[in-house]
Design a protein around this nucleic acid. Structure first.
Length: 804
RNA sequence: GCCGGAGUGGCGGAAUGGCAGACGCGGCGGAUUCAAAAUCCGUUGGUAGCGAUAUCUUGCGGGUUCAAGUCCCACCUCCGGCACCA
């Protein structure tokens, strides 16, 4: 009698309830078993609910987590909420509710949506970054950073978003506009909390050599850190004891320096005010530059501008030549020393500037035509017009000049990084308060550990002010405290931390989420860390991923965690685009809602489609028909119950394909080639229908390898087959290498490289048997009497006969 | 401009230098049905041919090789990141 039709809604609800009640996927505290820690980026619980992008990453890791459990690992696959953030705060302002209430409602919604997709998360270890028990440890880590001199307050120009009324980190400014709202970012001088991530630039770079991250991620982080090796060289001013330092990556071209450029803000201008005969013009240029936003200043194809500094010359330390000095905003105060030596013959920017202002161009590396363009090749060039460097290659010349400058005491080798310190304060309400107290007498005093967490006060108005002060600043009751040091009246810091704070260490908390005496216990950390496999979005490469590596490296240095790097392996998923191939967004009207998809085809088919739709690491447009096709496949799997026999093992006819499929699926999952793994299972099912029946053993093996992708239906059929134990308690199936060997194989016969026929031959023939195959009647027929020039036999593949 | 990634049927995509187009979607034809949906069977890169078959085909142009989607050189387009970083 045929089984009833496949009803995903009923099956899925049933198994989700069973899993929940049996605590099926909670990590065990038994630390004697081998562990596997799989991680996905914990979601920001937005009001919009789950996006179809979330399940792509989640399902991919869920498959790995489920497979690992079947392989006998103690698996930690946790979930939590990155719940601080502006959208929640803005929603709260607009609707006059407390952000904490909005957050709770959103989390509840997210959790129920995730449960409907059947992810095997360990919900008993949920973390929530806004929970005071969590905030306490975020603040604690901040204080460790502060105590080690890695958190400091500085007055500096920052990126200010006039719409969010908030300062932004460099990493949050994209193309000159606010990453979040798209408003052009302006520069504003403010006192800000900073984290000295630059102190870890080299460690962040070195650590990449020891982790298994996809290359794209490593390359992007390396570029962002931007290490360069060069030299700092001191230039004196004529008739003065004053000097200034430049940074250059091409010290070898020192003889070709024909002018100097200072950044408009360079302090030398102020110091030399009396000697500069056009001081007013210099000041005017400085003001003009300051008015420009970062965006204008870096706009594409911008014509370079500048003014000469009159009355002063720099003296080239290597040959005593006097060199004119210019101001130009193509030199940035924030990188290197804010001053450069310009070598127009061998630097494109200097060349453009020299041409515009008719400055001399001296060739010092032969190989190009410096009248036409700057010659920047560092491989081929040989030094000329450079005294003792003449005849040396660039690399040799660099060494020689640095040695000479060092000897003379006017220069030395120097490494620079593009990475900047991390602007760590935000002038908003819904974030972790920075646990510092300002005392007139004692200065900045950390909140004592016993007083953590510093919790957010209840306020009636979360609205930030245009003055750039946090809403907390107007909360007198909260702000005014007594100094923990001297007891005199003092004031709390009113800035809060950025959203990146909580997400910089959440993976540590998962190891021991209920610990009240430490952010996590040593034993739990030693057992679970590092994260074995972390999948997430490319957009976090230079933000969350870099920040959290920094925090972890620091915690390692102060002895809080054992492993230096937090993540052993990092992979990344592609974006899901709308059906029209454009980015999904409300305004484009092409958003696919996961709830609707599940209602129509079920969670298993939804998961299956998300994994089948294309290469995992590439952007893919959604296809409603494609999703339906996946449902059709599950219908076919379901109906296999109608044609199943009682035979236990594999039938001889299907033995080879069964083993091949188990092998392919097992290996493809590990490589995240989910689409081809699923294709292989579809092929198997097609083959089974072609034969009209399936043995119990074959069906069971299919269910085992399909269950990580489509767990509910596999549990159900597994139970229908009479099993008492759930499928997720079964061992992952092995394959039999012997069964993969065929008796006979079909090979292609090529005549001069073109396929002209196919024949079956014994599979074990080797190159030594070439003559035998050549002699076969079918082959001779194709050769048709022509002269054989060459024969290539590739066992198992083809025979290529080259004829005249 | 620099650094990554990618260009393959109508579409999403397969393919350790070894039979291009697996698998799915869509299309076409048929079965079932009063009819439709669902399901099942067949077929499906282009061109020529009733056909066996021939021929062309992996962004463009060269090259290496018995053999190139895959390797090398040069170029074009798209996506992502960085961008006056000295």
């Amino acid at each position: 009698m045929p089984v009833s039709s496949y009803d995903p809604a009923a099956i899925e609800a049933k198994w989700q309830k069973i899993w929940e009640e049996s605590h099926a996927f909670e990590a065990s505290d038994d630390h004697s078993k081998p562990k596997f820690y799989g991680l996905i980026e914990f979601p920001y619980p937005s009001g919009q609910g789950l996006h179809v992008g979330h399940p792509r990453s989640n399902t991919a890791m869920d498959i790995i987590a489920r497979k690992r459990r079947m392989e006998g690992y103690n698996v930690l696959f946790p979930i939590g909420w990155d719940a601080f953030g502006l959208p929640t705060e803005n929603y709260a302002i607009k609707n006059k509710v407390h952000p904490a209430d909005v957050t709770k409602a959103n989390i509840d919604h997210f959790r129920s949506q995730l449960k409907m997709i059947g992810f095997s998360f360990d919900y008993s270890r949920e973390v929530n970054t806004t929970d005071p028990n969590y905030v306490k440890w975020t603040q604690w880590i901040f204080l460790q950073l502060y105590k080690h001199g890695l958190a400091y307050k500085a007055e500096m120009p920052i990126n200010w978003c006039p719409s969010c009324k908030c300062g932004l980190a460099n990493e949050e400014v994209v193309g000159g506009v606010c990453e979040r709202c798209g408003t052009p970012v302006i520069r504003r001088v403010k006192t800000q909390w900073m984290l000295r991530i630059t102190a870890y630039a080299q460690k962040l770079l070195d650590g990449l050599d020891h982790v298994d991250f996809i290359d794209r991620v490593k390359v992007q982080q390396r570029n962002w850190i931007g290490r360069s090796t060069g030299a700092e060289i001191d230039f004196c001013l004529n008739d003065s004891d004053e000097k200034f330092t430049v940074y250059t990556t091409r010290p070898d071209t020192l003889f070709g320096a024909t002018y100097m450029v200072l950044s408009p803000e360079h302090p030398l201008i102020d110091r030399m005010k009396d000697r500069i005969t056009n001081y007013d013009a210099c000041m005017a240029y400085r003001e003009e530059a300051a008015r420009k936003s970062d965006f204008e200043r870096s706009e594409l194809n911008k014509e370079k501008t500048g003014v000469p500094v009159e009355g002063l010359y720099a003296v080239n330390p290597i040959n005593g030549k006097h060199i004119p000095i210019w101001l130009s905003d193509y030199v940035l105060m924030s990188y290197g020393t804010g001053a450069i030596m310009a070598v127009p013959a061998h630097d494109t920017r200097d060349w453009e500037f020299a041409k515009k202002y008719s400055l001399p161009i001296i060739e010092v590396v032969a190989g190009g035509d410096v009248e036409k363009e700057a010659y920047t090749d560092i491989q081929e060039g040989v030094l000329v017009n450079s005294d003792f460097l003449n005849g040396l290659h660039v690399a040799e010349a660099k060494k020689a000049i640095i040695a000479r400058l060092t000897e003379m005491g006017v220069g030395h080798e120097k490494v620079n990084y593009k990475l900047r310190d991390w602007v760590f304060s935000r002038q908003r309400y819904w974030g972790e308060p920075i646990p510092i107290i300002h005392c007139d007498q004692c200065g900045m005093v950390p909140v004592p550990e016993a007083d953590l967490p510093v919790v957010l006060p209840k306020v009636s108005n979360y609205e930030p002010s245009d003055s750039g002060e946090s809403p907390l600043a107007s909360m007198d009751d909260w702000v005014n405290v007594s100094c923990p040091c001297c007891g005199k009246p003092a004031r709390r810091e009113t800035d809060t931390m950025p959203q990146w704070a909580g997400s910089s260490w959440y993976f540590l908390r998962y190891c021991d989420p209920h610990n009240s005496s430490a952010f996590a216990g040593k034993e739990a950390l030693d057992y679970w860390m590092p994260v074995d496999w972390y999948n997430g979005g490319m957009e976090h490469t230079t933000l969350h991923l870099l920040y959290s590596r920094f925090w972890h490296l620091f915690l390692h240095d102060i002895g809080c965690v054992s492993a230096p790097e937090p993540y052993k392996k990092r992979t990344s998923h592609g974006m899901i685009l709308g059906e029209n191939g454009e980015k999904m967004s409300k305004s484009r009207g092409n958003v696919i809602n996961p709830d609707d998809v599940i209602r129509e085809i079920g969670a298993d088919a939804f998961r299956l489609y998300e994994m089948f739709m294309g290469a995992f690491d590439q952007a893919i447009p959604w296809s409603t028909n494609g999703a339906k096709g996946c449902r059709k496949f599950l219908d076919r799997v379901w109906r296999l119950q109608d044609i199943v026999t009682e035979e236990k093992g594999f039938s001889s006819a299907l033995n080879g394909l069964m083993n091949e499929t188990i092998k392919k699926v097992s290996e493809d999952y590990e490589k995240m080639k989910y689409n081809t793994a699923i294709a292989a299972m579809m092929t198997l099912v097609n083959e089974i229908y072609g034969r009209g029946q399936v043995t119990r053993g074959e069906l069971e093996a299919l269910l085992l390898i399909l269950s990580p992708v489509a767990p509910h239906i596999c549990e159900e059929i597994w139970q229908n087959l009479g099993h008492k134990e759930p499928i997720h308690h079964q061992a992952w199936p092995a394959w039999d290498e012997e069964a993969l060997k065929h008796q006979e194989v079909e090979i292609a016969i090529q005549i001069s490289g073109k396929v002209r026929g196919r024949i079956m031959i014994p599979a074990d023939l080797t190159k030594d048997d070439t003559e035998r195959i050549l002699a076969l009647e079918d082959v001779q027929k194709l050769i048709n009497g022509r002269q054989v020039v060459k024969v290539v036999f590739v066992p198992g593949r083809l025979l290529n006969v080259v004829v005249k």
